[in-house]
Design a protein around this nucleic acid. Structure first.
Length: 267
DNA sequence: CGTAATACG
């Protein structure tokens, strides 16, 4: 019987870390104080943030994996405890130059900030997404089998089931809810063994994490659940609370926080 | 419609 500590982890696609900061995101972060914060779409280079204390909050170690292209993509991770090791990228140049993967290792637990390519801008980017998904599934399988526990947080850019978006009927031919993408998530769960930690503890409808800026999507709650904590099966029994924070709006996504019954090992 | 640079989501 282990009465472990609670580990609180938040993920959020910021749609620009500087814009999110102007909207008060770092005030929320300071109030909420998760143990680990995973963010995506920083849309900034490290050099554009250096020297601004806002982006380096007291009590946190900050790590960045920027895209080569200015103002584009990029992920980051903030941790109260210093990780034993940080790995940026997957070792795949096509993906790594877009800054989409950052892993922090704490003992036998890894926390990843991940940003799946979007296919919404056209066929070329959808092909890029599919071309990446194929080897990624094998890679995720190997992670699941490696004897470590993983919490892969981020914007996966795929809604899994009709319950995960408002207008599922009209979106079946749109990127993010294509049958092939949904089947890939099925394989992530059924073959690789990953678990959608939020869905494990919350079975309600209309639990969205993204709303288009266009029209009145936010006001009408016309959303999609495309941000996830994907966890290895060993963590299944350790998921405690789950919350999507919508009281304030820092970007087109909402912060997704889960608590785990887990104590980080001292480095 | 929004971020951040003239593309991408």
């Amino acid at each position: 019987m282990s009465a472990g500590m609670s580990l609180k982890i938040t993920t959020l696609n910021l749609n620009g870390i500087r814009a999110a900061a102007r909207k008060g995101f770092f005030d929320w972060f300071a109030r909420e104080r998760p143990d680990v914060l995973c963010v995506q779409e920083t849309k900034a280079q490290r050099a554009q943030l250096d020297g601004n204390a806002l982006f380096f909050p007291e009590g946190y170690h900050a790590f960045f994996h920027d895209a080569e292209q200015r103002g584009y993509s990029g992920v980051a991770l903030y941790a109260r405890q210093e990780p034993d090791e940080v790995r940026t990228g997957l070792g795949w140049p096509e993906i790594d130059r877009e800054g989409r993967w950052l892993e922090a290792r704490f003992g036998k637990l890894s926390v990843v900030s991940f940003y799946m390519p979007s296919g919404t801008s056209g066929a070329q980017r959808q092909d890029f997404k599919y071309t990446f998904m194929e080897p990624l599934l094998d890679h995720l399988k190997s992670l699941c089998e490696a004897g470590r526990e993983y919490i892969i947080c981020g914007d996966w850019n795929i809604a899994h089931k009709p319950i995960d978006l408002k207008n599922w009927r009209s979106n079946q031919k749109n990127s993010g809810f294509l049958p092939e993408e949904r089947a890939w998530l099925d394989r992530l769960f059924d073959e690789a063994g990953f678990v959608d930690a939020f869905r494990l503890v919350n079975l309600e409808a209309e639990q969205y994490t993204w709303w288009s800026f266009r029209g009145q999507a936010w006001d009408n709650n016309t959303g999609w659940r495309i941000d996830y904590h994907m966890i290895t099966p060993g963590l299944r029994e350790r998921v405690r609370g789950a919350e999507i924070y919508t009281a304030e709006r820092f970007s087109d996504h909402a912060p997704l926080t889960l608590a785990y019954d887990w104590e980080l090992q001292a480095g």
